[in-house]
């Protein structure tokens, strides 16, 4: 008798427990690795606030897009927006909601760690292998107060497919016609010169170990690792040092309503030119993504929170928060997200 009572009690407690937990909805997402530290912080805070659990797998932007298309996740995340051709592959329309902005900086290893200034043309020619030595006239002209060594320039790039490479090559394609024709833009490209390192840490490892090397890494990574990085001349003609502020400023342009926009080489006068948004992708009509109504509501709440209160977690983790205009446009997109014809955001 005692035993039965005990078992009943256990069942009762377990029942209460699951009833208590069933309030907490679980959302799943997959995609970009670049915003992963920020997202996991945001999702953790959101869980504390609301009890909603978000399970995010940083499997890469490509995987995120594929999984969203296969409807195995509630939302996808990507560092590069889906182009028109890619959108056609989706059976139903999706929307891009920008969450934060990141930047790619040009890091180098030179004796004495001088602060270098570079122009887009010089940068492109270095990565094309046309400028071969550090004391080349064209670099020296820009950096008159720096004693440049006669070291050969060694280019380091990402070997794995990545959004960082996409932003960087997108920029080079915009500023150099030769780059556009010879190499082009993409998550992996056919590099004319140099060595490949896997991940930000791979490139950073090559740059740190090799005197005379130059490579590109994410801004957050360069700040955390105290790497020297170059000041770049932007489209308006100003030399801009990459920082969270100058990255946010790069978005001070006329943004399109669907926010599928590249922030490289924008006309913003004090914006850092190799910047880019990172997006969360969801179906415009959430029932298309096989979400329940409950989940759909919670997903929209989560995204709204990330765009508003959640933005305060950007800066401590070295991500650039969205500018006011970008935030407004993002919220406008979120308003159009529906469930069976019903808008979810009031």
């Amino acid at each position: 008798m005692k035993k039965i009572l005990f078992i009943l009690l256990v069942i009762l407690i377990a029942g209460f427990n699951t009833a208590g937990f069933s309030k907490g909805i679980e959302l799943t997402g997959a995609g970009a690795t670049f915003p992963y530290p920020l997202y996991s912080k945001m999702f953790n805070e959101y869980h504390k606030l609301t009890g909603t659990k978000v399970n995010y797998q940083a499997i890469g932007s490509g995987g995120g897009i594929r999984q969203l298309r296969a409807k195995t996740v509630d939302f996808g995340a990507s560092d590069a927006f889906v182009n028109d051709e890619g959108l056609k592959k989706f059976a139903s329309p999706i929307v891009h909601i920008p969450m934060t902005a990141g930047a790619v900086v040009v890091a180098y290893n030179l004796p004495g760690n001088p602060q270098l200034k570079l122009t887009p043309e010089v940068l492109a020619d270095i990565f094309l292998g046309k400028i071969k030595k550090w004391n080349d006239k064209r670099i020296a002209e820009l950096n008159k107060n720096v004693q440049l060594p006669s070291l050969p320039i060694m280019v380091a790039h990402r070997s794995d497919g990545s959004g960082t490479t996409f932003i960087f090559t997108d920029y080079l394609s915009k500023v150099s016609k030769e780059w556009k024709e010879k190499v082009g833009k993409g998550k992996s490209v056919n590099w004319p010169v140099g060595l490949g390192g896997k991940g930000n840490q791979g490139v950073a490892g090559l740059v740190k170990n090799m005197p005379g090397s130059i490579g590109y890494v994410e801004l957050a990574y360069a700040i955390q690792n105290n790497m020297p990085y170059a000041t770049l001349k932007n489209k308006a003609g100003n030399f801009v040092k990459p920082s969270l502020e100058s990255v946010s400023k790069a978005a001070n342009i006329d943004l399109p309503d669907d926010m599928r926009v590249s922030l490289t080489n924008t006309g913003a006068s004090y914006g850092y030119p190799i910047s880019g948004f990172t997006w969360i992708l969801v179906y415009q009509n959430l029932e298309d993504g096989k979400l329940s109504e409950e989940k759909a509501k919670e997903l929209v709440n989560l995204l709204k929170w990330m765009l508003t209160e959640g933005q305060k977690y950007c800066e401590p983790l070295h991500y650039a928060p969205l500018s006011e205009t970008a935030k407004k446009k993002a919220l406008a997109i979120l308003k159009k997200v529906k469930y069976r014809g019903k808008a979810l955001l009031k």
Binding site: G60, S61, G62, G63, I65, G161, K187, S188
Partner: peptide, 9 residues
Amino acid sequence: IANEFTEAT
């Protein structure tokens, strides 16, 4: 394969 598989769209 290891390098490019995750981001091959």
